[in-house]
Structures are given as structure tokens and as C-alpha cells.
Simulated assay, not measured.
Amino acid sequence: MLLTHTRSQELAVLYSDHHGWLVSFLRRKLGNIDNANDLAQDTFTRILTARDADAIREPRAYLTTIASRLTAQYFRRLALERAYLDALAAMPEETVPSPETRMLIVEALTAISRILDGLSPRVREIFLLSQLDGWTYADIATQFGMSVNAVQKSMIRAFQHCYTAVYPAQ
């Protein structure tokens, strides 16, 4: 994205006026200055690459929203890493994947989690019961007190959402 001189100046002022405040805000949430600095930089990077960041009327509210989303992603990634490391600890040593493979797996799990977070809780649960737990649509319908047709429609929404997330319209 090409920055105009005016937009570049506005972003520089936004950064200089609010960077310290944002780092303090994130440090309180994360309890760590290094992670706070990283997420603050990620926040400003998001603004720099955003297409709708033209006239920011409430800079701190805008920064808080972006930083909070990034913080949620950070904690989700930590939870996934912990769960994965716990699963690895239970494996026989000779079957444990290499550190590079582990990193790729954690990145894939994070991407999948982010995609699934875009679904409504009910559709996400229906999708996971079907795809991970192997439940039939009839079993899911009984569990939720709905028709099989309604389960099918939920699955269609889930598949469409996943397809769109993986293959966005160009």
C-alpha cells in the first residue's frame, strides 16, 4: 500500500503520541515488557497496512481494539502451544517431531483456530463434533434438539466459511 505524505505524517503522530501508552496498556495485560513491545509494534503494523485507517477519531479506542485482538491471538497461540507440548510429553521420545516440525504444527493449529473463531459458537461446535469426533448429523441433531436439515445447513455455513478463509476472493 502506497502511503501519502499526509497519511505518513498522521501515522507518525499517532505512533509518537500513543506508543508509550499502548506499551503500558499491553504490559498490564501481558505482564511482560518484551511481549508488550512486540504486540505494540504488531498493532502499529496492522494500522500501517489497514485500508480503513484513514481518519481515526478515537486513537486510543482504535489502538485498544486492535491490541486486544492481537492479545487474544497471542494467548490462544500460547494455549495451543501448551496443549501441544503436553501431548508431546506423553509421546515416546523416539516419535517426538523435530523442533522445526513442532513450530510448523503450532502455526497450522493457530491458523485453524483463527478460522474456527470466525464461526458462531453453535456452528463451530456442530462442525467440530462432526469433523473431529465423528458424530453423525442425526446424533448432533439429537444433542442440540434440532433437525438433521438444520445441522446440514450449519455444516454448509462452516464449510463455506472455511473455504472462504483459505481461498479468499481475489
Rank of each mutant, 00 (worst) to 15 (best):
1 M>G: 12
2 L>D: 14
3 L>N: 06
3 L>S: 05
6 T>N: 04
10 E>Q: 14
11 L>A: 01
12 A>Q: 15
14 L>G: 06
14 L>Q: 10
17 D>T: 05
22 L>Q: 07
22 L>E: 05
30 L>S: 01
31 G>M: 06
32 N>P: 06
34 D>F: 00
35 N>V: 05
35 N>D: 09
38 D>H: 01
38 D>G: 00
39 L>A: 04
41 Q>G: 04
42 D>P: 00
43 T>Q: 01
43 T>E: 04
43 T>I: 01
44 F>Y: 14
47 I>D: 01
48 L>R: 09
50 A>H: 11
50 A>I: 07
51 R>T: 15
53 A>T: 10
53 A>M: 14
57 R>H: 09
61 A>K: 14
61 A>F: 06
65 T>L: 15
68 S>Q: 15
68 S>V: 02
68 S>I: 01
69 R>E: 08
70 L>Q: 13
72 A>E: 15
75 F>P: 02
75 F>K: 10
76 R>H: 06
81 E>H: 08
83 A>W: 03
84 Y>P: 07
88 L>W: 03
92 P>G: 13
94 E>K: 11
96 V>T: 15
97 P>A: 07
98 S>C: 06
101 T>K: 07
102 R>V: 15
107 E>T: 05
107 E>A: 11
108 A>Y: 04
109 L>M: 12
110 T>A: 11
111 A>Q: 14
112 I>M: 14
112 I>P: 00
113 S>G: 11
114 R>P: 00
114 R>I: 03
119 L>Q: 04
121 P>M: 11
121 P>S: 12
122 R>W: 08
122 R>C: 13
125 E>V: 08
127 F>L: 08
130 S>Y: 06
130 S>N: 11
131 Q>L: 07
131 Q>H: 12
132 L>W: 09
132 L>N: 15
132 L>F: 08
135 W>P: 03
136 T>R: 08
138 A>L: 12
139 D>A: 13
139 D>E: 14
140 I>Y: 02
141 A>S: 10
142 T>A: 10
144 F>I: 02
144 F>N: 00
144 F>H: 05
145 G>Y: 06
148 V>E: 15
148 V>M: 11
149 N>G: 10
151 V>Q: 09
154 S>G: 12
155 M>H: 10
155 M>K: 10
157 R>M: 14
157 R>I: 10
160 Q>W: 04
160 Q>C: 13
168 P>N: 14
